[in-house]
Amino acid sequence: MTAGPRRAVLGQNQYGKAETRVVRITREGTTHHIKDLNVSVALSGDMDDVHLTGSNANVLTTDATKNTVFAFAKEHGVASAEEFALRLARHFVTSQEPIRSARIHVEEYVWDRIEAPDAGPARHSFVRAGREARTAEVVHDGAGGEVVSGLTGLVVLNSTASEFHGYVKDRYTTLPETRDRVLATEVNARWRYAGTDVDWDAAHALAREQLLHAFAGTYSYSLQQTLYAMGARVVERLPDVEEIRLSLPNKHHFLVDLEPFGLENDNEVYHAADRPYGLIEATVLRDGAQPRIPVEPARP
Rank of each mutant, 00 (worst) to 15 (best):
A282Y: 08
L255M: 13
Y277I: 06
N265A: 00
T283C: 14
E281W: 04
Y270F: 08
V256N: 06
N267F: 03
Y277K: 05
E268K: 00
E264G: 02
T283R: 14
N267L: 07
G288Q: 05
D266V: 13
P260M: 05
D287Y: 07
G262A: 01
A282E: 13
F254D: 01
E259T: 13
G278I: 12
V256Y: 02
H252C: 05
I293M: 07
G288F: 10
L263C: 01
E264V: 06
N265C: 00
L279Y: 15
G278H: 11
L255H: 04
Y277A: 09
A272S: 09
Y277T: 11
F261V: 05
I293L: 07
E268W: 01
F261M: 13
L279V: 13
D287F: 05
I280P: 01
L263T: 05
T283Y: 12
Y270A: 01
Y277G: 04
D257Q: 02
D274W: 09
F254N: 00
E259L: 14
E281T: 13
I293K: 05
G262M: 01
Q290W: 02
D266Y: 11
D257N: 11
H271N: 03
L279K: 09
I293V: 10
T283P: 12
Q290M: 07
F261A: 14
I293R: 10
L279A: 08
F254S: 03
P291F: 10
G288Y: 10
P276V: 11
R286H: 03
N267V: 01
H253R: 00
H271R: 03
E264L: 01
E264I: 03
R286P: 01
G278M: 07
L285I: 15
L255K: 07
T283M: 12
Q290F: 04
D257R: 05
L279E: 10
Y270N: 01
G278W: 11
V256W: 04
D266A: 15
L258N: 07
I280Q: 09
V284Q: 13
R275C: 09
Y270T: 01
G262Y: 00
V269P: 00
A272Q: 03
T283S: 15
D274T: 08
G288W: 11
L279F: 13
D287I: 04
P276N: 12
D287E: 15
L263S: 04
